Simulated assay, not measured.
Amino acid sequence: MNLMADLCVNLVPLFNALPQDEKMQIEKLVQHKNYEKGEVIIDPTINDNLVIVADGNAKQYTLDEDGYENVLQILHTGDYIGENWLFGQKNVNNYVEATEHSEICLLKRQDLLKLMHKQPELSIRLLELNIVKVSEMQKQIHLLALPKVEDRLLKYLQTYADEIGKNNFTLPLKMKDLALYLGTTPETLSRKFALLEKQGQLKRQLRRIELLEN
């Protein structure tokens, strides 16, 4: 048994609706590879793979005309990307890069499409999850439209607090990942946290945050 492939299948919500014997069918289709920090997993020449992070972290980004990275999302263990490519969408300007030593599982478009013809519920599940991912990306786009980093940060924190129903919480992202998500650097992010704390917007103890009433 390929234990890493089994780990991939069980981590991805896309396959949760399937019984174990059908998950094992997917396991047989999965290829697994190790990538080091800074190594590119997907580039615009590759557009037929579902990429699953079995262990580690990666980032998805595009490059502008000056070669500057625009980070679209941070991928952690259990995250995946590439479902749109599986349905024929061309990868025009997307890169996926390991941000630390990572174990990656790859599922080819042709193999998954064959399976989906046999398992229609998989197509429905994929559509539902894709809607959720689009919604999350729209939230990030709205944040990046705010010109000031401190406004992006405060809006992100307020939105997360509303989602969990608490004003006191631990940041769900590491500082470096949150900085990428908000389109800034960890150093700038730390300064903006200090600014918001000075303004009486929040209290912070490492990754523990308390939003204050104004």
Rank of each mutant, 00 (worst) to 15 (best):
P147L: 02
Q140M: 02
I104V: 11
L3F: 10
R191F: 08
L171K: 10
T77G: 03
T99V: 12
N214V: 08
Q89T: 14
D21S: 13
V12W: 00
N70W: 03
K174N: 00
D177F: 05
E136Q: 00
N49W: 13
E136I: 02
I74P: 00
R125W: 00
W85L: 08
N34K: 10
L195V: 11
A161H: 08
R125P: 03
E128R: 04
V9K: 08
N57G: 09
V53S: 04
T184Q: 06
L14W: 00
L86N: 08
K148L: 09
N84S: 06
V53I: 15
Q158E: 12
I26D: 02
T159N: 10
R125V: 06
M24H: 11
R208N: 12
L129K: 04
L211M: 09
Y61P: 09
L206I: 07
T184L: 07
N130F: 03
K176F: 01
S190L: 12
L196K: 15
G82T: 01
G88S: 06
K155W: 05
D177V: 06
A58P: 07
M24T: 09
A194V: 12
W85P: 02
T99D: 05
E163Y: 04
G67E: 01
Q158P: 06
H117M: 11
P19K: 12
D79V: 00
A5Q: 12
L146Q: 03
T159S: 10
H101G: 12
S190M: 11
E163Q: 15
M1I: 12
N93M: 09
Y156T: 02
V96I: 14
N34F: 05
W85D: 03
G200A: 10
N2G: 08
C8H: 05
K176A: 02
T99C: 14
E27R: 15
D79L: 05
V134C: 03
D162V: 13
A58E: 01
V71R: 01
I124L: 13
L206H: 14
K198W: 04
E39T: 11
A17P: 12
K192H: 07
E65F: 02
K59I: 01
C8P: 07
P172K: 11
L154P: 07
W85N: 13
Q89G: 04
Q73G: 03
Q31K: 14
T170H: 12
Q201G: 10
T62C: 07
L11S: 04
L7N: 13
I131P: 04
F169Q: 03
H117T: 10
L14K: 05
T185W: 05
L113E: 04
N57W: 08
T188K: 13
V51W: 04
Q119L: 14
L106Y: 07
L171C: 04
L146G: 01
V92F: 07
L202H: 09
M24K: 14
L212D: 07
Q205C: 05
K139H: 00
Q60D: 00
G56S: 09
L196C: 14
I46W: 02
G183W: 02
A98F: 11
Q138F: 01
E39Q: 15
I209Y: 05
D177E: 03
K192D: 08
I42N: 08
T188I: 15
Y35I: 06
A17I: 15
Q158M: 13
V12F: 00
I104R: 12
D6M: 15
E210D: 11
